[in-house]
Nucleic acid binder design. Structure first.
Length: 677
DNA sequence: AGCACGCCGACT
DNA sequence: GTCGGCGTGCTC
């Protein structure tokens, strides 16, 4: 009955126990010559296909409450929906250390859990504004069973007080003796949220679950959630599978964020699993965003979700004025290797004005490093990666060429490796170069840079943010990480320097993501409201100022943007009007992955006799080679979810078989509801 | 996924 | 003669 943690084992294995064990019990069982952790899935009195005397006995039962029916149903659904093994899904939901502890070690850990001290005496809840009050009342009615449970989309701009709605709703769930699960897209966002929940409800009631914890911390907080001692569980996408025996409310903050979808292993969407979990338990779930995913927006429009709008920005800071700068009017510099200046003169002046007034500016450039590629003017050599179909990025600070796909790093050559020419030039601009150019464009200005390179050391993100908050920085340059969650009170100007490159991506979700990014970045400005008598501004440098996306952004009109996008999706037969799955394959040689996918397509049509599905031809991945692996993918589409699910389930065994005959294929995976295609 | 078994090259 | 390379296949 227990289900050990192996992807090759799709089905639970049978073991012998002296007496029936309740489903969900955690057990140690022998497997091969190892001992592994298992979950009792069901109890059967006779096993027809396996002789009872051949069954190995369950070794021992962990001294923990069994995982409840709600958790088991969630795991069963997730495994089936994302086409993964039951044991694999269960194992990914349990803390790894659990498998390694013996009875005495586990008992010691359980004893050391902080007990509910009942510290009480916590910060009082502030009064709510009308919109917040209305949202809380809807959730409250669902919590108290006065209205049927239905997801609530909390549509509110940055600074409109979404967190306060979460806190009030959580307080009501706690008062009913229920647990609350709060999901955020990134680890970076957990500390500030944890602080707010701890201040309101007491730190002893809050547990955190994310991949940044040490194994011991992760086990401790998982046990606190499982035992019910922690009533508030905050975390990233992996927290959606936590054991929460008294779960009564789920919050998904920034629900549109792509980080909720896992990009490896079982490619599950924590947001979608959270919605399923809430529906299965008939409990309320609130999805918060200023720029909801089109799926969620569509669900709200269809009446499947309720919508609660937060229109006012608390602190009365007006929305930033959006200025679209037409780059095609700018003179293009002549000469070899000439690059246009990073900022148009008007923008430069606006930043100088801010500096003079003691206000801050935020410059968004979605490209880290100094220059995306080096180029030899004599022989046209470029700094390609030998292991990937990608350029290596020039990082000036440590004089390296780095591949952002595989990590391959070398010292930058002093001369062209092909022809020996000494004159190799950087092409294009990243945040590092932008910072350098600003040093001469804005002499004396205090600059700072925030990207994956300047924040990789532990604590350096916090240190950089502290400098900004303390007013020690005039101009902050960064990649999209500056747009997320951080509250910059003194910022009155935000500029996106080159967002067009995100607009013309082959990915059909690119416009949706760009709109969310720009809206979110714009939200960083203007919270200073009271600080300055000048309205905050958001500048966008673009070659396409008439593009409907930028036009909608200028009016802060998400609804219009969503409507036009949904229309495009409908006519193109894309989600949410169709359901997609993507089969990906990696291979050691150039043809292997393609041949595997061709064979897979043939096997696929055999499990789709009614031709309910559309099988697209295999295509190379947008970056076909990474770390010497060739990547291909194949899209499968269906207007209905159920036939797609049935076909995928029938397809998986054939794919396992094809892997054996296609030797060069190293990996394959089905990505259900892929974010990018 | 582990961890076996199994069948071929360079070492004491 | 053996140590060990990773291909193949099984785990109740």
């Amino acid at each position: 009955m227990p289900t050990p943690q192996h992807s090759g084992l799709g089905q639970p294995l049978d073991y012998r126990a002296p007496a029936p064990l309740p489903p969900g019990s955690l057990v140690r069982v022998p497997l091969g010559r190892r001992q592994v952790l298992g979950v009792v899935w069901e109890t059967v009195t006779d096993s027809p296909d396996y002789p009872p005397e051949a069954l190995k006995p369950v070794d021992s039962v962990l001294a923990l409450a069994p995982l409840d029916a709600g958790w088991r149903a969630l795991i069963r659904f997730a495994a089936a929906y994302y086409q993964r093994g039951l044991g694999e899904m269960a194992a990914s939901a349990l803390p790894g250390t659990l498998a390694q502890l013996d009875e005495t070690q586990l008992a010691r850990r359980l004893k050391r859990l902080p007990t509910e001290a009942g510290v009480g005496a916590v910060a009082a809840a502030p009064a709510l504004q009308a919109g917040q009050q209305a949202a809380v009342e809807r959730l409250s009615a669902q919590l108290h069973g006065q209205s049927p449970a239905q997801p609530v989309l909390l549509w509110g701009l940055t600074g409109s007080g979404k967190t306060e709605v979460y806190l009030h709703a959580a307080a009501q769930a706690l008062a009913l003796g229920r647990q609350v699960l709060v999901l955020v897209p990134e680890i970076n966002l957990t500390p500030q949220l944890q602080a707010r929940f701890a201040a309101r409800f007491g730190a002893e009631r809050v547990a955190c679950l994310h991949s940044g914890l040490t194994p011991a911390q992760r086990l401790r907080d998982w046990l606190r959630a499982h035992s019910g001692q922690a009533e508030l569980v905050l975390g990233t996408r992996l927290a959606v599978l936590a054991s929460l025996p008294r779960l009564g409310l789920i919050v998904v903050d920034e629900e549109h964020d792509a980080s909720f979808k896992a990009q490896d292993g079982a490619r599950q969407s924590a947001r979608d699993l959270a919605v399923w979990r809430a529906a299965n338990l008939r409990i309320p779930i609130v999805l918060g965003s200023a720029t909801p995913s089109l799926e969620t927006w569509h669900n709200a429009q269809q009446g499947r979700y309720q919508r609660a709008d937060l229109i006012e920005r608390i602190g009365a800071a007006p929305l930033p004025k959006v200025r679209l700068v037409d780059l095609s009017n700018q003179p293009f510099p002549k000469g070899p290797g000439a690059t246009p200046p990073p900022l148009v003169p008007q923008l430069l002046q606006a930043i100088e004005q801010r500096i003079a007034r003691g206000e801050q500016s935020l410059l968004l450039l979605n490209r880290r490093g100094y220059a995306p590629v080096l180029h030899c003017g004599q022989c046209s050599w470029r700094s390609g990666c030998p292991h990937c179909s990608a350029w290596r990025v020039f990082h000036k600070s440590d004089r390296t060429l780095r591949c952002h796909h595989c990590g391959f790093t070398e010292r930058v050559p002093t001369a062209c490796p092909d022809c020996g020419n000494q004159d190799i030039a950087p092409i294009g601009r990243g945040t590092e170069r932008l910072e350098e150019q600003l040093e001469s464009l804005l002499p004396g200005a205090r600059l700072a840079r925030l990207d994956a390179d300047t924040t990789k050391l532990a604590g350096s993100l916090e240190a950089q943010l502290a400098r900004v908050h303390a007013g020690e920085v005039d101009v902050l340059v960064g990649t999209q990480m500056i747009a997320k969650g951080h509250d910059f009170r003194r910022v009155t100007l935000v500029a996106a320097l080159n967002p067009d490159n995100l607009l013309y991506s082959s990915d059909f979700r690119a416009p949706e993501r760009l709109f969310a990014l720009l809206m979110q970045a714009g939200g960083r400005a203007g919270r200073a409201g009271a600080l300055s008598e000048h309205p905050a501004e958001m500048w966008v440098q673009t070659h396409q100022p008439r593009h409907p996306l930028y036009q909608a952004l200028q009016r802060h009109d998400f609804a219009a943007f969503a409507a036009s996008q949904l229309e495009e999706r409908q006519s193109a037969g894309l989600p949410p009007f169709a359901h997609l799955a993507l089969l990906r394959a990696d291979s050691r040689d150039e043809e292997g992955a393609r041949d595997f996918l061709r064979a897979a397509a043939e096997a696929g049509r055999a499990v789709d006799p009614g031709e309910a599905l559309f099988w697209y031809p295999p295509i190379p991945h947008p970056v076909p080679k990474v770390a010497n692996q060739w990547r291909w993918q194949m899209l499968v589409e269906c207007s209905q979810r159920a036939p797609l699910q049935r076909a995928l389930a029938g397809w998986v065994p054939a794919l396992h078989g094809l892997k054996r005959t296609h030797k060069s294929v190293t990996r394959w995976a089905i990505d259900v509801d892929p974010l990018a295609i």
